[in-house]
């Protein structure tokens, strides 16, 4: 299947068939199938050890594609990790421009940094950045490549609650503006429901739950329907809520 050349979306569909990964006797992904619509925002939930990160690493082509699996992936891909993974010996703009060809690398990096609100930190060393600033730099580094597939591996897990709220808004804004097919791995059910159009729960190496989130944006915890979704997803993750709403 060829990637859709839909000019409205800077994205293409993602298709995974029969993805199996084993580490020794341990089967982490077991014949997993996955389809993501172009430009969609999907959250991937799962208990620790459920294979979320393995799936993401395969999609990022950090791990080799196993035999028997078929992957059609939108390219280019960009990843933001839980740790910003900035090179400490390069300034903020150099980190963003890493691997960009050509003379306009710097101006492209600066434009991306402006978009994430870091124009004033262009020349800073990563060691001087706050956690939120570092993670915004990592987002700018992902965006500057105009990715058609954006993978976010628990990018906000290490941030404080207030910074996380701001980062949620930023990610949504960037996603709306650039429209990449986006997959966020998280173990925060609230984060998944706040951000994504669709929430997947990974269990025993397969997609065990596939829930569409049809709440209007911007979403709030107090929205009707939020609590129900939350309870449903937590249930799928094996967490039963004692108090009934």
């Amino acid at each position: 299947m060829a990637p859709a050349n839909n000019p409205a979306h800077n994205a293409a569909p993602l298709r995974v068939r029969n993805l199996t990964r084993r580490f020794g006797a341990n089967t982490v992904l077991d014949g997993l199938d996955l389809d993501l619509a172009p430009g969609s925002f999907t959250a991937l939930l799962g208990r620790s050890g459920s294979g979320k990160s393995t799936l993401l690493r395969t999609l990022a082509e950090l791990d080799p594609v196993p035999k028997g699996a078929r992957l059609d992936l939108p390219r280019p891909v960009a990843v933001a990790f839980q740790e910003p993974r900035l090179l400490p010996w390069k300034t903020v703009w150099q980190n963003v421009a890493l691997g960009l060809p050509g003379r306009e690398a710097r101006s492209r990096a600066e434009a991306a940094l402006e978009e994430v609100g870091l124009s004033h930190r262009v020349e800073a060393w990563p060691a001087t950045l706050s956690g939120g600033e570092a993670q915004r730099t990592a987002l700018a580094r992902a965006l500057v490549r105009s990715p058609r597939l954006l993978l976010l591996d628990e990018p906000f897990a290490a941030l404080d609650a207030l910074t996380r709220i701001r980062m949620h808004a930023l990610v949504l804004e960037l996603w709306r503006h650039h429209g990449p097919t986006t997959l966020i791995v998280t173990h925060d059910v609230d984060e998944a429901v706040l951000l994504a159009d669709r929430v997947l729960v990974l269990e025993n190496g397969r997609i065990a739950e596939d829930v569409a989130v049809e709440l209007p944006r911007p979403r709030r915890h107090a929205d009707p329907g939020f609590a129900a979704l939350r309870r449903q997803l937590l249930g799928a993750l094996g967490v039963a809520l004692e108090e009934a709403a």
Binding site: L62, P76, A78, V79, R85, L98, G99
Partner: peptide
């Protein structure tokens, strides 16, 4: 190795 991995994703070849 995490830095190496990140740099690889962002398109650096072995020389880079």
């Amino acid at each position: 190795p995490k830095l190496v991995e990140a740099a690889r994703i962002f398109g650096l070849d072995r020389r880079g």
